[in-house]
Design a protein around this nucleic acid. Structure first.
Lengths: 353, 353
DNA sequence: CTGAAAGCGCTTACAG
DNA sequence: CTGAAAGCGCTTACAG
């Protein structure tokens, strides 16, 4: 076994002194070939007026010299960076990391790269990142607004000069393309599913009130109740702010006001699963005594017992569509519009409801 | 309720025609203030020889004109991009997304941004991204090698000119700073924990053979056995390639060869949990009949029943340390060394073993 | 089909 | 303490 000194450094092997070899430029290629930099540039960009022979020679030499275009220089000249900025509240989160996966796919298919920033739900960090990305670093921005953000004026102002697509956490104060999950309809389906199991009260564990996501899911819940002639009872609603630590208390609150509750719809799977854990601790049977439906179809949904019935909202798809729209915005600026695309949700029927 | 037409577009609100307002430049500030661009640049960069008065005026005007530095231009001139490239096999994965979170934190504290690419475990995509990042886009690279990668020559060649730190998926063929979890010791601890529960055979569900991560965890397992005078039995080893679909078969294979097995150590939590699910289907009690230990302390570990005993390896910390090393490499190139930092692991004792 | 020249927005040695 | 000038590596109208 290795020693405990392993805990830190080991193996300080022979020093390597880095010296950054100056990368080859267009000028180097031109010189080695005895032609002009202009021609090299054109050949590299497959300009139609350059002889195939010349192109071939240039490409070969470029390979030989390990040439790769200097993006800063090219970007400075053309005002294109082939980078997209992404601003999310948190990277390490099932939903957002899946969205990022979808974005990366579409971006990469179109030879774009992603500059990803994490706001930690802080308004000032958000503003800082947006500012920095917009300053010549990216051709456009994909953004999901932080929870804390109150003042959209500055943001809207900065973004008015830049193609931007909002996803998931959107705001009407920033008029552009919005891509969202079908939050309203998903919540409606979830609640209807709970109602369909038989008569009884249905509670809702809601998310942060400020977020449109929470609001839309709450609306879906309320409308499903209404459609079934069940009047909305505020005592059946508790907000957990996406904070799983608040769940046991929220469940207690609901149970105290309405011990006879028979279904809970939670704003996301993490909250739903925490609720299941809390209910099980009280020896409440799921779904016999209380049924639970989540939102998101996180990997944990198929691990918890009973397996969580939930709404899948296809985060990778959200990322793909948002990126698709942004690239269209960048490439045909004149067609830019204020609009919303809603990605369909689906009820995944498992054992918790 | 909204109509099903919502599934796609809706709300094609008033068209907005974007026209990118040319952002203010240093020249604009200079003109409005009647001073030279040189002075503006110096003032903005807080050059010591500029009068405080001038600095103040310049900063005020910069704010008024919504000036922000053009990174492409500044980068072209100074050969600094203040961006770090990150190349990972997959973004939407608990381990990597947590590592990214840690990287983002340290990068942002040092005014660096992250350009993140996902290789999908493909050697050619990996090469393509590295190539592109290195071409003047980033000051350094953080990288976790894809499973498929066989040929390190080209990679090593490209990277020899660029500061690079490898994390988690490393290779000695790329001699630089490596940051890894304490895979060997974690596996050792996990296996020792299983052995300590009493006499009996301990199996291992291993990862992709090519990965050093898998190799180190396998070594830890073997050494723990050896230290307890248990000889290694290949019939107790099955490889699942990080593919949860292969787990039931692997469990069957082990159980067929050794029905009396009493502990399983899995290469990661996903595999461990899939094994628990498979065992439960066979009405095998956990941990009474067979105990299970995972690796990684994923969120699912505290949800599965029984709660998974596992090894925590602190992915965010791995990301933080890797970034820290890269920034040091970038800022004091001469101190660059070939070395390895190992982030300590810890046994998280829950109910599955 | 190719070249010479200008210029993208910045930084920085050089000069004063 | 400030300015004029050169130049980073590229692209592209202009000229031939």
């Amino acid at each position: 076994m290795e020693t405990s000194a392993d805990n830190f450094f080991f193996g300080l092997l022979p020093f390597t002194v880095y010296f950054r070899i100056m990368p080859a430029t267009i000028k180097d290629i031109a010189q080695s070939l005895g032609i002009s930099p202009s021609t090299v540039s054109r050949a590299l960009n497959d300009h139609p007026q350059i002889k195939d022979e010349t192109k071939k020679a240039v490409r070969e030499m470029a390979r030989k010299l390990h040439y790769s275009v200097n993006q800063a220089a090219s970007g400075l000249r053309t005002n294109k960076t082939f980078s997209l900025g992404v601003v999310v509240p948190q990277i390490s989160n099932y939903f957002f990391s899946s969205v990022l996966g979808g974005m990366q796919k579409v971006a990469s298919e179109n030879d774009y790269q992603l500059l990803i920033c994490q706001t930690n739900e802080k308004e000032d960090e958000e503003l800082r990142y947006v500012q920095s990305l917009v300053s010549g670093r990216v051709d456009g921005l994909l953004m999901s607004i932080s929870q804390e953000t109150q003042n959209f004026d500055r943001l809207a102002e900065i973004l008015s000069d830049t193609p931007v697509v909002l996803f998931d956490r959107t705001s009407e104060k920033i008029p552009t393309i919005h891509v969202e999950a079908e939050d309203y309809r998903g919540a409606y389906l979830a609640t209807r599913h709970l109602i369909s199991r038989g008569p009884g009260k249905i509670a809702h564990l809601g998310g942060p009130r400020k977020l449109t996501v929470s609001q839309n899911r709450l609306r879906g819940y309320k409308d499903a109740l209404e459609e079934n002639n069940i009047s909305f009872d505020p005592g059946l609603l508790a907000h957990c702010e996406f904070d799983i630590k608040k769940v046991p208390e929220a469940v207690d609150k609901i149970l105290a006001a309405h011990p006879e509750v028979k279904g809970i719809f939670a704003v996301n799977d993490e909250i739903a699963i925490e609720a299941i854990l809390a209910l099980k601790k009280k020896n409440i049977r799921i779904p016999e005594d209380i049924a639970v439906v989540g939102f998101g179809d996180y990997p944990i949904a198929r691990i918890v017992e009973p397996n969580l019935t939930t709404i899948s909202h296809y985060p990778a798809k959200i990322g793909e569509r948002a990126t698709h729209h942004l690239l269209k915005l960048i490439n045909h600026r004149e067609e830019a519009a204020v609009m919303k695309e809603v990605i369909p949700c689906e009820l995944i029927n498992r054992d918790s409801a």
